[in-house]
Nucleic acid binder design. Structure first.
Lengths: 123, 123
DNA sequence: CAGGATCCCGGTAGATACTG
DNA sequence: CAGTATCTACCGGGATCCTG
């Protein structure tokens, strides 16, 4: 179980970071958005989330499950079928996530411009 | 300058993660919220942001500056005085950040409960 | 099919010491 | 005061191999 010892295992002293601790791992957001459209199988997630390894996908899903944001359904078939779905709690996170996403759509180019300008100056 | 090679140096293939790349470093959010109340000196930030080292504070501020979210003001005094302030672009990020923060206030206990329950089951 | 178990690398964060 | 420089430890993340 020591694989669950992610970097946010310990509760943050500053509550401003708590939401980010829930969400800020590399694959969490992508998986999260993938589940927004409904219940999905492990293999489908693996296909949709380009570049993710089995290890990281599993680890990410476990963490989301542990945090109560995602529910895991195992069906006793052969071969096994496992599906994942956002919980009601998980769905409440969609709104703030969308707010962040909209900010990105609106301002990410500004960030990129700022980076270029900064790198130009300090070169 | 190779210290600026943070993990989000390379543009993410998935735009859902971009906003988080801007914000999801360990100290970024804390510093950001600290600057919400106005322009502050380096030493004051150092005091307010409990646990941060000079290295990480400087690194975080540089990154925020590079992304155009924070402005840096150097005054030619002895000893030197440096102040940091949110830019207009930086201020536009406050709204989505606040949304995340409110989610935390409302639901973080649920997350903690879910974790306890999960750890209980899988023990 | 859906993972578990290992091995390994690179980078981030921390500690410490030094400086204009 | 506001950093820079260096060294080190740790761990996230990838690759690979194995399994009920």
């Amino acid at each position: 179980m020591s694989n669950l010892a992610f970097h946010h295992e310990v509760e943050s002293p500053c509550h401003y970071r708590r939401a980010l601790e829930v969400v800020s791992n590399k694959w969490t957001v992508v998986v999260f958005y993938e589940l927004e459209t409904g219940k999905k199988r492990y293999s489908d997630l693996k296909k949709q989330v380009v570049g993710v390894t089995q290890k990281m996908l599993t680890q990410t899903l476990r963490q989301l499950e542990r945090d109560g944001l995602v529910a895991r359904f195992v069906y006793p078939t052969v071969p096994p079928t496992v599906e994942y779905e956002l919980t009601p709690l998980g769905k409440t996170l969609m709104e703030p996530m969308r707010a962040l996403h909209q900010w990105t759509e609106a301002h990410y180019d500004d960030v990129l411009d700022a980076r270029r300008a900064f790198d130009q100056e300090t070169k």
